[in-house]
Design a protein around this nucleic acid. Structure first.
Length: 905
RNA sequence: GCGGAGGUUGCCGAGCCUGGCCAAAGGCGGCAGACUCAAGAUCUGCUCCCACAGGGGUUCGCCGGUUCAAAUCCGGCCCUCCGCACCA
């Protein structure tokens, strides 16, 4: 029977669906296992597939172990990406249209459907449906009756309830916040709105603009390194550019024209008049710390489109400044303000072999090097902060300068950026931005308490989470645009996409009841009742009360989440928020019980990226190889927590093995005769491997389980076949084939179902109990392992035997040796030596010198075993075998109990 | 700098927790053989060095230590990657 995965997989999919076997009811030992829902903006790739595969393998394993497993999922559509794509499609953006047409083609749909995608909800719905079918096809044992997406009204109500709750607990705050912004659009812009925003990220830099007194005005010079202010020697302005005087906090400040424009979006300023750079150059200004007068030079390298367009120069700690002064031929003595480091600017310049101020790449590299060295190892050695580590004091210095009124913050983009329409991107300050206050001390304490007792895999997660909890602070939780739920406290805001996805696993448990309710009746009271058992539900319809009671029962049954699995990039964001929000909203008995993180998927050795063109869609893989093979690949290729490389050459190799496995199992049922006694060791092997795999599964060491049950077991069977031949092998397989298939059911569920059926197994393999270890075959296995040792020895000897041997004489050890060994094992070295004869002593000493001494199979009835396998061995090795009881010459005297001497002739 | 993960025989990658059948799984690559007109595919064997009898030698980033015994445990050091950091 050839392995036709297409037919097999669709057959079982239909049956599973028809019998709804993955829709559990509230009975038995529950287990709620979740994986974060995917973002439904495109076809999923094998990376998503891996995460869900791991979840599914555990779900299936636990189900077979007797747990009532609920493995639900939903879809994420919050945020800007889907909205952005829809807009771009509407505008006719060619790249986006091509991308989405390629998705439509991938799914075999008419590319003209692209028109529909100008509506975001159509994109979301289209892909949600495709993902459901993709994931079903992968064999994921998901309960599809509980699906929802984050844009639905019910979800919105749930999130509104959550946010009102958080607000009432004082965990939501408001404040000013800098954000990337387009002046032309009059709107904040996200990564997706910025040209090349995905490949070259834009972040927000916080410059400190220091005020240098200049007559009745000030020059605003911007820096990222306020800690070097003590070392300032001069100012630079660009002689060719326009500057203006603005009024800021009652002071007249000179900044570049461009800077003034940006500053209008960052605070209250007034633009007074233009001022020519020539009016500044050659004059002096006073630095604010000591009133020291320093010269103002003109320099064309000063970029007036970066920060304020005026920079202060610290040649002792800036490569750029040092080179600039040298370039201008100005001699100024650098002022060292940082100690504790071994290299100064000049040495770094030499180290990086910089010869000119135009070598910007080298300069950037050297600057980074110098900065990191000074930041991590440097100590201030001048001024009032002398003696402090820079890494400790930098923040304080900045705050002090601002408080003293000698500096203000200027936000700037980390690179020059424009929107996809070509409009300039700047940083604007948003007033009254809403934050989730993750800096709240009591809140953090609760999370730490949870972390202490949670199950985490790998264990190192605990420390990582603790770190994140330590440094996490306020997080903006709402935006002005995007899909999602409106903030209940202020409907102009939409709750941001990571903030609306924290406690939603709770919704899986009750979504079915909510859907049956009269939508208008769903309010906070209902949620309070379902989740906390609070309230009487007075004034609600009987039906809604009834459904609420049912939902309450469901929630109480399924919650908390027993396990959550996802990729490690989520540790410092989603998973942390997941913990924070759970401890805030729910009582302790509903806090999450376990989390694991998995590695990412590489494609042919590289990170998957659209730009590299190596993204492998899940659907393609399913069509080409089938779900079982995909699952098996990820199960065997790396442990859950490590990255995995998807390599087509290895997939092909595995495909052949899987075909072989399937062929063995299905054909074996045609062999009706009982297996031979001497071949039963294979069942012993299987049981041994089963036990190891079972232990591994329990610890989520999926790879180990898969390797034992699939690879190693397949090798054992092939070994049996090469010795015993096809017929006997198949008869032996028939005896344990069903258990073998069942044991692998969590990993390759379709083949397991098929084999289970062929073997006349009852019900579904997916719902069968996991096979139990059976030790009936232990002794025959040990006999066989004795033979394996013999084969190993034979192979070793033939390697160095000069001719082709015709005959193998096997000499067993004299009986007394075994007795002596047993005696020795009983007494131990000390006592044995007391009573032993010189000959016995010599023998024992020679044995313990051997490194394999402990592994002698002294309990095997060697003669019986050798007689049993003699014929097989003769055929296999193509050699005559003689078994001799007594040793005569030197070589044969080396025979030990469990390790006979071999003489080739 | 903090936190994490690593450094294994040509490459990828197991083993390390629970020290000893570990010269170290598996795959790739390479070599030889079978099959074939040939190539490919497939199968078999070999693939650290030495050795015409199951042996010996040198290996698991580096240096020490513990132990009868260390890839595995302990201490120190070097290097790589990832996350974080008003980082450029």
């Amino acid at each position: 029977m050839p392995y036709d995965f297409g037919t097999i997989e669709s057959k079982w999919l239909q049956r599973w669906e028809k019998d709804k076997i993955f829709q559990p009811t509230e009975t038995g030992k529950k287990y709620l296992l979740t994986v974060p829902y995917p973002y439904a903006n495109g076809a999923l790739h094998i990376g998503h597939g891996r995460t869900y595969t791991i979840g599914d393998i555990m779900a299936r394993y636990l189900r077979m172990k007797g747990y009532n497993v609920l493995y639900p999922m939903g879809f994420h559509i919050s945020g800007t990406p889907i909205l952005g794509f829809a807009k771009k499609i509407e505008k006719g953006d060619r790249g986006t249209i091509e991308l989405y047409k390629s998705y439509l083609e991938l799914y075999g749909d008419n590319p003209d459907l692209i028109k529909e995608f100008s509506k975001p909800e159509n994109i979301a719905n289209y892909f949600a449906n495709k993902i459901i079918s993709d994931f079903s096809n992968m064999g994921f044992s998901i309960d599809w009756s509980r699906v929802f997406n984050t844009g639905e009204p019910i979800y919105n109500k749930f999130i509104e309830w959550q946010f009102r709750k958080l607000f009432s607990m004082g965990l939501i705050k408001q404040g000013d916040y800098p954000i990337l912004y387009s002046i032309v659009e009059g709107n904040p812009v996200g990564e997706d709105d910025i040209a090349d925003g995905d490949v070259d990220k834009v972040s927000i830099l916080e410059f400190v603009t220091v005020l240098f007194k200049f007559g009745d005005k000030y020059l605003g010079a911007s820096t990222l390194r306020p800690e070097t202010l003590e070392g300032v020697t001069n100012l630079f302005v660009n002689p060719d550019r326009k500057y203006v005087i603005i009024e800021l906090q009652g002071k007249k400040v000179v900044v570049s024209k461009g800077a003034a424009e940006k500053l209008q979006y960052q605070g209250e300023i007034k633009i007074l008049e233009e001022i020519d750079a020539k009016e500044l150059i050659g004059k002096e200004a006073a630095e604010p710390l000591h009133g020291r007068s320093i010269p103002i030079f003109g320099a064309k390298f000063v970029d007036t489109d970066n920060a304020t367009g005026i920079v202060y120069s610290v040649p002792a700690h800036s490569i750029q400044d040092f080179l600039a002064l040298k370039d201008l031929g100005i001699e100024i003595n650098p002022i060292q303000v940082i100690g504790g480091i071994n290299e100064n600017v000049e040495e770094v310049i030499r180290k990086f072999k910089i010869s000119s101020i135009d070598e910007t790449e080298k300069i950037d590299e050297a600057t980074k090097y110098l900065y990191e060295m000074e930041f991590y190892h440097g100590i201030i050695n001048k001024g009032k902060y002398a003696g402090k580590w820079i890494r400790d004091i930098k923040e304080e210095i900045k705050n002090d300068y601002i408080r003293e009124g000698i500096a203000f913050i200027f936000y700037e983009t980390s690179r020059k950026a424009v929107t996809r329409d070509g409009d300039k991107v700047i940083v604007a300050i948003i007033k009254n931005q809403w934050f989730l206050d993750y800096s709240n001390v009591q809140w953090k304490e609760k999370v730490r308490k949870l972390l202490e007792k949670m199950e985490l895999k790998p264990e190192s997660l605990r420390n990582q989470f603790m770190q994140v909890v330590d440094w996490i602070r306020e997080r903006p939780c709402a935006r002005k645009r995007g899909l999602g739920t409106r903030l209940p406290m202020d409907r102009n805001w939409v709750i941001e996409s990571l903030s609306d996805s924290t406690i939603y696993p709770a919704l899986y448990t009750i979504i079915r009841e909510l859907r049956e309710m009269d939508f208008d009746e769903i309010d906070d009271e209902i949620f309070d009742y379902i989740f906390f058992g609070n309230g009487e539900l007075k004034g609600k319809s009987d039906r809604t009360v009834e459904l609420s009671k049912k939902a309450r029962k469901e929630f109480e049954f399924w919650y908390p989440v027993d396990w959550r699995h996802t990729g490690y990039p989520h540790i410092s964001n989603h998973l942390t928020f997941y913990l924070f929000n759970h401890v805030a909203i729910f009582p302790e008995n509903y806090w999450p019980k376990g989390i694991s993180t998995g590695g990412i998927v590489l494609s042919e050795g590289q990170k998957m990226a659209k730009s590299k063109g190596n993204v492998v869609p899940l659907l393609t893989v399913k069509r080409k190889y089938g779900a079982d093979l995909f699952r098996l690949y990820f199960a065997t290729n790396a442990d859950v927590w490590y990255d995995v490389d998807w390599r087509s050459s290895e997939v092909n190799m595995m495909q052949k093995k899987l075909e072989k496995f399937y062929e063995y199992l299905t054909n074996a049922t045609n062999y009706k005769d009982e297996p031979e006694e001497r071949d039963l060791w294979i069942i012993g092997k299987f049981n041994e491997r089963l036990k190891r795999a079972d232990d591994a599964f329990k610890e989520m060491r999926i790879r180990e389980a898969a390797v034992e049950l699939f690879y190693n077991m397949l090798n054992d069977v092939q070994e049996l076949e090469s010795i015993a031949g096809r017929d006997r092998t198949m008869r032996a397989i028939r005896k344990f084939g069903k258990e073998w298939a069942l044991s692998l059911s969590p990993i390759i569920p379709f083949i397991s179902e098929e084999v289970n059926e062929i073997y006349g197994g009852s019900s579904y393999a997916s719902l069968s109990p996991y096979p139990n270890y059976n030790d009936n075959y232990k002794s025959i296995l040990e006999d066989w392992e004795y033979v394996e040792d013999l084969l190993e020895d034979f192979k070793n000897i033939t390697k160095i035997y000069p001719n082709k041997p015709n005959k193998m004489k096997i000499y067993l050890a004299e009986d007394w040796k075994k007795e002596v060994l047993l005696e020795f094992n009983k007494l131990g070295l000390k006592d044995f030596m007391k009573s032993a004869t010189p000959e016995q002593r010599e023998f024992i000493l020679s044995v313990i010198k051997r490194k394999d001494a402990k592994n002698l199979r002294i309990n095997v009835d060697e003669l019986k075993v050798l007689e049993m396998y003699k014929e097989d061995l003769e055929n296999y090795l193509k050699i005559k075998i003689e078994i001799m009881k007594t040793a005569k010459d030197e070589k044969s005297k080396k025979a030990l109990p469990g390790k006979p001497a071999i003489i080739l002739e």
